[in-house]
Design a binder for these strands. Sequence first.
DNA 1: CGAATAGTTGAGTAGTCTCAAAACAGGTGG
DNA 2: CCACCTGTTTTGAGACTACTCAACTATTCG
Lengths: 229, 229
Amino acid sequence: MAQLRQVENFAYSTPKGTEWKPTPITNSFAVDTVLDAEAFSKLPVLIVRSGAIGLLHMLGDGRQTISVIYFEGEVLDFRHFGKTSGRATCLLPVSVELYSGDDYDNLQFQSTQFQMEQATKRAQQLIYASQHSVDLARKSAIEKLASFILESRKRQGLGRHLDVLLRLRRADIADYMGLRAETLSRAFTKLKKLGLIACDQADLVHITNEPGLRQLANGKVNWMKTRVQ
Amino acid sequence: MAQLRQVENFAYSTPKGTEWKPTPITNSFAVDTVLDAEAFSKLPVLIVRSGAIGLLHMLGDGRQTISVIYFEGEVLDFRHFGKTSGRATCLLPVSVELYSGDDYDNLQFQSTQFQMEQATKRAQQLIYASQHSVDLARKSAIEKLASFILESRKRQGLGRHLDVLLRLRRADIADYMGLRAETLSRAFTKLKKLGLIACDQADLVHITNEPGLRQLANGKVNWMKTRVQ
DNA sequence: CGAATAGTTGAGTAGTCTCAAAACAGGTGG
DNA sequence: CCACCTGTTTTGAGACTACTCAACTATTCG
């Protein structure tokens, strides 16, 4: 296992004292690397510096789903992983900070500010997961894509910027939004024809009608009536 | 607002000291009560003692979804609620313990054990939400129902017991699993005809073929080939 | 340049949704 | 006790979305 060796190569030499800061251990992984929880038993807490890690689930007949995505700044704690948590897979080239469980916990005990930050991040994860359930449950393909574009912009911290870089591959977006790649492709075509987005490059989406896109994502548009040929 | 008055009726008289335990304030709500976050600004941390609270989301054209359900023992922290978190709604008669933010945080600072318990619970919430996304994303109606029955058993702590009480109403189960009530009803019929479950009463499911039900829930059964008339 | 991967387009099908109506359950009052 | 009402669950027929499978185009990379 590649990532096992990579992790073990780093000496775990955090000084133990009452007032200390653990030396941040960073590590990088290529796209499609599977992060096996067992390989991270000594340094089970990952903070994503760049890239994206997804939890990949596979049904018995090969249907795939990405249930949760961890983007920059988000925390993946392997200590809380179960058998049903899927396989942590790098959806992009990933760089992470690694912490031992004790170091991470002690950091929170020492700094109230750090503790609050982390609590907020964890809560935010649940909010994202909750919102994602809403997206998956009852939205049409085109609504799911509109939601994904807006979620991407929000989680990349782009504010109200109209150019959103969808850094994930189409297949990964499809797995995340509960669609087939073909259906997702058709949804892109429809969004363009509706004049809500424009794509110069493959993964750069320019939002041409933000209110419309937001309304569509929130199910407020009966887009059937504005049907496109 | 009914729940506002109910909350305010309790005097907030937790003694402030270095070694103290906040007096647990309990409160009860009827089915379909909406727990408005603003009414809980003073006591924003809810621990569910009995019943179930769901986060209800509504799309612009009336489509409903329940994204997350809080069952016994689970913690709902209104401090981390955002506009996209939906409306906390009682799916059953609910009894909760209420804590102020400071009390809840201090409890965790004082007791490492309590802190660990709570961290595990919060992590478990994310695991449930993650698994729920898998259920919603690519499963058929009958697979969703099989998954829901098994999830219900697990979260009620019934172990391997074969009698599962689905305490939620059909409409709520449907909202949670991203189905229409009609489709859910048809899925029940199919599960019965496949001989995987038997229902004496409306909300009591007896699992007659657990391995089959589990395989179906995990997408390992091409149930099309074992089609039922 | 050719091979491999990623993404798009097309036609037909399966499964869920929609809308309508019927069956069922629980409570109230005569 | 039964008729009645209200809300929930089930059944039925048809429409429509997303899936499947296949072929095609575009892009990446050696």
